[in-house]
């Protein structure tokens, strides 16, 4: 059994709010001042003409203080990446291939209403409304995200486990894989007009990978709803695989018998395999897989096998040649 501490579960109440996170870099006193002002200001407008000086704003202002340390690192002690970086440096070709441009291009993206159709080899096919999915008791997870382009981030997600959803549709015994599909709509995703990619974006997992406790369907980031550039309104997060496996803006999930072919497998079969597990031993023709740049740091890090989640997931691949099954 993996020791419990290797998976860090942090409740939404504990996660650092973005403002608090920013405030850290400023003077702490300044932060309290501002927070106090905001709090008393709110009180003023809410219950005038009471005298604000008699009300102590401290309890409301201090509340996010304690979880700051709890929410700041992953289980390896790595600091969470700046929110600014997470929201402005994105690979999302449905908008643009320019990582800096995704935030702007996706600004007006409409992700409500939204439905996720779950079917295929299941006993209980179901179409979920995003509003209902958001009601599933959210869990918070801080995961490392390792892009195949040799950069990485540490991101606080919120959502629910994929297994939670799959249990509701009750997969049949013939189901061996899960296939995911992103919305196909070139009006909302102008990048899909680029015919050099076989849209829609599709991805796949083996059923046991999909049922793994680490595999998350995220609807939130940094304690707020998922931003369009991060895959609103719902995306997959598989932290031990390269980032492109974590498909964004999902509309369809199918249980299937055969191994699905992902968009990247179609575009570059020799470069992108079905498994795409983070593995420093398996090289790529363009980017170093033995080391990576952690966004926000100036020195390279050595890449960890399964992105540091080997304790939890290595058993899934026991006996497999990971060089062949890249």
């Amino acid at each position: 059994m993996a020791p419990k501490k290797t998976i860090m579960k942090i409740y939404s109440s504990e996660i650092t709010p973005e403002q608090t996170y920013y405030a850290q870099s400023q003077s702490r006193r300044q932060f309290f001042k501002t927070a106090g002002l905001v709090a008393s200001g709110a009180l003023l407008s809410a219950c005038a003409p009471s005298t604000p000086s008699t009300v102590d704003p401290a309890p409301t202002a201090i509340k996010p203080e304690k979880p700051v340390t709890a929410g700041q690192t992953d289980e390896l002690g790595d600091a969470i990446t700046q929110y600014d970086a997470i929201s402005n440096y994105n690979n999302f070709y449905e908008f643009t291939t320019d990582k800096q441009g995704v935030a702007q291009m996706s600004a007006g993206f409409v992700s409500s209403p939204w439905k996720v159709q779950v079917g295929g080899l299941v006993n209980n096919p179901k179409t979920f409304d995003i509003d209902d999915l958001r009601k599933i008791a959210p869990i918070e997870r801080i995961y490392r995200m390792r892009c195949v382009e040799a950069w990485s981030m540490v991101i606080p997600w919120s959502g629910f486990t994929l297994s939670n959803l799959l249990k509701q549709v009750d997969p049949k015994s013939e189901a061996k894989y899960v296939r995911f599909e992103t919305l196909l709509d070139s009006n909302r995703f102008p990048g899909q007009r680029d015919r050099s990619f076989p849209w829609p974006y599709t991805e796949g997992l083996r059923l046991d990978e999909a049922m793994h406790d680490l595999t998350l369907l995220a609807t939130g980031i940094y304690g707020k709803p998922l931003l369009p550039q991060n895959g609103a309104p719902i995306r997959l997060v598989v932290p031990w695989k390269y980032g492109f496996k974590s498909i964004k803006s999902i509309v369809k999930i199918d249980l299937v018998a055969e191994q699905p072919t992902s968009l990247w497998m179609k575009s570059g079969p020799s470069e992108y395999g079905f498994y795409s597990n983070v593995n420093p031993e398996v090289s790529h023709p363009r980017w170093s897989q033995s080391s990576e740049r952690r966004i926000g740091e100036m020195a390279r890090r050595r890449t960890l096998l399964f992105n540091g989640y080997a304790d939890q997931v290595a058993s899934l691949y026991a006996g497999m040649d990971l060089r062949k099954n890249y």
Partner: peptide, 19 residues
Amino acid sequence: VDYRFAFDLIWDDLATKRY
């Protein structure tokens, strides 16, 4: 600056990346 003269990593990349 990038690899900080970590020659094992540089060598690994040189050997596997034709570019």
